[in-house]
Amino acid sequence: MKEPPRVESLRDAYGKALVELGERDANTVVLDADLSGSTRTALFGQKFPTRFFNVGVMEPTMMSIAAGLSLTGRTVFASTFAVFAAGQAYNAVRQSICYNRANVKIVATHGGLLVGPDGGTHQILEDIGLMRGLPGMTVIVPADAPSTRAATFAVAGIEGPAYVRLTRENLPVVTDGTLVVGHAQELRAGSDLTIVALGAMVARALDVAEELGRVGVSVRVLDLASVKPFDEAAILRAARDTGALLVLEEHTVLTGVGALVASTTAENYPVPVRRVGVPDVFGESGEPWALLDHFGLSRERVLEEAWELLRQRGKVQ
């Protein structure tokens, strides 16, 4: 029996990476909207109090202030929960940050269903679609703590706006932390089917791939942490090499990366694509991992969809 992978906090990884950035670069400034304990920006605030601004519950204006702070060349991080960053503050992100091409990195914690008991109001399932649609915005969804650390450094190194979505729950360590913006990392080689996943669903993809591997099905796993820029080449390579794609996302399927993968293959190299994500509904209160099962993202559902694709491809009866 293989040992289960260790789980780590993405938020801790973010907070620690911010402190390192702060030590390295005196132009790093951090803002938060009364959630600095939760988002872990408080770590930066304790170390660099003059470069940390807790603005209270004013997410839209936090984005405008962040933009104003960045225009002389600072790197400004702004953190809060994803529902506030992408939802509450959308037009400030759009105009103050993106339209102005401000050098602001929004690192949003508590994305998706895994927020858990707080319920549907706080489980944003639309943020990736909203943020990806903004011109000039980089969008990163790390799968684990090491790639969260890498994402924090990566977005600091890019000139211009970025959105990083983090998960509240601790997640298994599944990457080696070598996240490259614009690159979909192959976490497992395979030739019968490709599972494309991001965030918390990457571990599930690897788990299912391993189970299928035990019965002789060869599954490639791509970590789509870099939603934008999107690694179209890796997706089309997977379509050519494996002939079918299964996309897993903790996000509404209406505007998620499943739709992006499907449109990319449809235009360039049509192969069967199936999407496992949240249907057109809001979430609700519950234990985080039970919510994934309830809303159709269970391990069993992923397996069923994988077998369905394999049947469609004639790889099994």
Binding site: T61, S64, I65, G68, L71, R94, Q95, S96
Partner: peptide, 25 residues
């Protein structure tokens, strides 16, 4: 032009950011 505006309600926020930046610098 120092700040792109148009959708209302964001200019003072951007100005606050600029004022904080000037103070920090």
């Amino acid at each position: 032009i120092e700040a792109s505006t148009g959708c209302l309600g964001q200019g003072v926020g951007m100005a606050v950011g600029m004022a904080l930046d000037a103070r920090l610098a």
